[in-house]
């Protein structure tokens, strides 16, 4: 037994001292290698990300719960002071919404009639998964959040994520019980969209702050834009359903069209993942059957 451990030590001791001597170089090279590999193929390091996020998401969820409870308590206490003003505001909103409900019902009926006349099939097969945001937007360099819903809840890579009825982003990495959402405000986010009023297509690109810029617009198309125009997803590419609001045009400066979302990015508590299947694209189960 002693001889075995002696042999083991004879093998491991030089290895250990070699590792200690070159530890710094090895680690810098490994980290540099990871950076380069990820730059070339972002999917190559996905397994590390998924494992780490899945490991820590229960801890982050547990830590978020008391913070969320404290925040709710604070908001409740604060709202008591302005209850009357809020009730009046809500009554006004209710009256306004009731008027819109009438309009919406009439338009829905008219829309259904027109759809049936044109013999067009509905293209949406969607269901939703709600999740809590367990990690705020990354750092100054990244605009992403972690949510506590993953593969086990039916979340898949690329799905759209909503908050406050607006598009918040898309699923980037999926773990078993958690996922990372790349927000529309991230500089790497590219969403095919249209300006709802004019129907002009564009691409919404994040500015890594709180906004989104529109690109791929001609000077004439930019001139036609009015402040307050709604920008919605176009559904091009079949990744996102059409018609989800991205934001409204806040200003145009030269060839820059700045769009702001109605999502409060600093108070993103819950998110809804949209499970969407385009009818023209085969579902995953079909691919499995084919294989």
């Amino acid at each position: 037994m002693r001889r075995r451990s002696g042999t083991f030590a004879r093998v491991t001791t030089p290895l250990k001292s070699w590792f200690q001597r070159f530890a710094l170089t090895l680690m810098i090279l490994t980290a540099g290698g990871l950076l380069i590999i990820e730059r070339i193929n972002p999917n190559a390091t996905q397994i590390i990300r998924v494992v780490v996020v899945d490991t820590f998401s229960p801890v982050l969820t547990a830590m978020t719960t008391p913070v969320a409870a404290g925040r709710e308590l604070y908001n409740n206490v604060r709202s008591y002071g302005s209850l009357r003003a809020e009730v009046l505001e809500l009554r006004d909103k209710l009256r306004f919404t009731e008027r819109w409900e009438q309009v919406a019902r009439r338009l829905e009926a008219e829309n259904r009639r027109l759809w049936s006349q044109l013999h067009v099939t509905q293209d949406l097969r969607t269901d939703f998964v709600s999740a809590r945001v367990i990690r705020d937007r990354g750092s100054s360099y990244v605009q992403s959040v972690l949510i506590n819903a993953g593969r086990a809840d039916g979340v898949r890579k690329g799905q759209a994520v909503l908050s406050s009825y607006s598009l918040a982003g898309r699923i980037l990495d999926v773990g078993q019980g958690s996922s990372r959402v790349l927000l529309v405000t991230d500089i790497n986010s590219r969403i095919p969209c249209i300006l709802e009023r004019t129907g002009v297509p564009a691409i919404a690109v994040g500015d890594n702050q709180n906004g989104v810029r529109l690109i791929r617009l001609t000077p004439d198309e930019i001139r036609d834009i009015s402040l307050g125009d709604r920008v919605v997803t176009s559904g091009a590419g079949g990744v996102f359903p059409a018609g989800f609001e991205i934001g409204i045009v806040q200003e145009t400066v030269g060839d820059q069209v700045i769009v702001v979302s109605n999502i409060n990015w600093d108070r993103l508590e819950f998110a809804t993942v949209v499970n969407y299947e385009h009818p023209d694209l085969l579902p995953d189960s079909a691919f499995e059957t084919l294989q």
């Binding site: 710094l24 680690m27 810098i28 490994t30 980290a31 540099g32 290698g33 990871l34 950076l35 990820e38 730059r39 390091t45 590390i48 990300r49 780490v52 996020v53 820590f56 982050l60 990690r135 990354g138 750092s139 360099y141 990244v142 992403s144 972690l146 990372r180």
Partner: peptide
């Protein structure tokens, strides 16, 4: 990973 940044940057800094 948890911040969502490129993998390896903070590892280099901390080391």
């Amino acid at each position: 990973v948890l911040v969502g940044g490129p993998l390896g940057i903070q590892a280099i800094v901390l080391v």
